[in-house]
């Protein structure tokens, strides 16, 4: 100790000790504090992977809160569609997208395993609770596309249907910032 502090150091040993002590206390306090105030939630979520969500808390926070569901207009002209599949409904029940632009679909389940199948095609997106299924779609022509769940999910399974309404690009409503489109917006 005498060697380290005495001859070569102008700062007395006790200040250095104090600094080390304060730094240790700060770090030790920071760790439980981040956990207590759940400040580390986003970090943990990010570490868990961006494809994972809590199926029981979709409505409380995160990507699948109510006001974020539906069609989002991206800057590059493409759209992002976010949906929830649950026993025995797709939410939103009717999706509005413009024709001929890339559609990034992001869908998750609130309960069981479902699938989003486009009727009269064999195209099928499997949806599982806890993870986000992604699909890249594009609808060349305007029209109404019926969708259904093709993964048996319980008593109301056969009524689990919804619709994608494709409109010509110029008829797609201009969405304000933060606004999401669905058929009601048309």
């Amino acid at each position: 100790m005498a060697f380290r502090g005495g001859r070569y150091n102008h700062a007395p040993v006790k200040w250095r000790k104090l600094r080390t002590f304060l730094l240790t206390v700060l770090i030790l306090l920071l760790i439980p504090a981040t956990r207590f105030y759940q400040i580390d939630e986003p970090l943990l979520r990010w570490l868990r992977g961006k494809h994972q969500v809590d199926p029981l808390a979709l409505h409380v926070s995160g990507e699948f809160v109510e006001n974020n569901l539906g069609t989002e207009q991206n800057a590059d002209g493409s759209v992002t569609v976010r949906m929830i599949a649950q026993q025995y409904l797709f939410i939103p029940h009717c999706i509005l997208v413009p024709a001929g632009v890339p559609v990034h679909l992001r869908i998750t389940s609130a309960d069981a395993v479902h699938s989003l199948a486009f009727m009269s095609t064999d195209y099928n997106v499997k949806v599982s609770p806890g993870s986000i299924s992604e699909a890249e779609l594009q609808f060349p022509k305007a029209g109404e596309y019926k969708t259904a769940c093709r993964e048996f999910c319980g008593a109301g399974h056969y009524a689990m249907r919804s619709e994608v309404r494709v409109v010509p690009r110029d008829q797609f409503p201009a969405l304000r910032d933060g606004e999401r489109g669905n058929c009601a917006a048309q």
Partner: peptide, 27 residues
């Protein structure tokens, strides 16, 4: 020490803001 504290505070503020978005409609 100072830089570390400031950094911790900045990161904390960022995460707190990311954690709850007051404009979300929670049913």
């Amino acid at each position: 020490l100072v830089v570390l504290t400031l950094l911790a505070l900045a990161v904390t503020a960022l995460f707190v803001r990311a954690a709850d978005n007051p404009s979300d409609h929670v049913p």
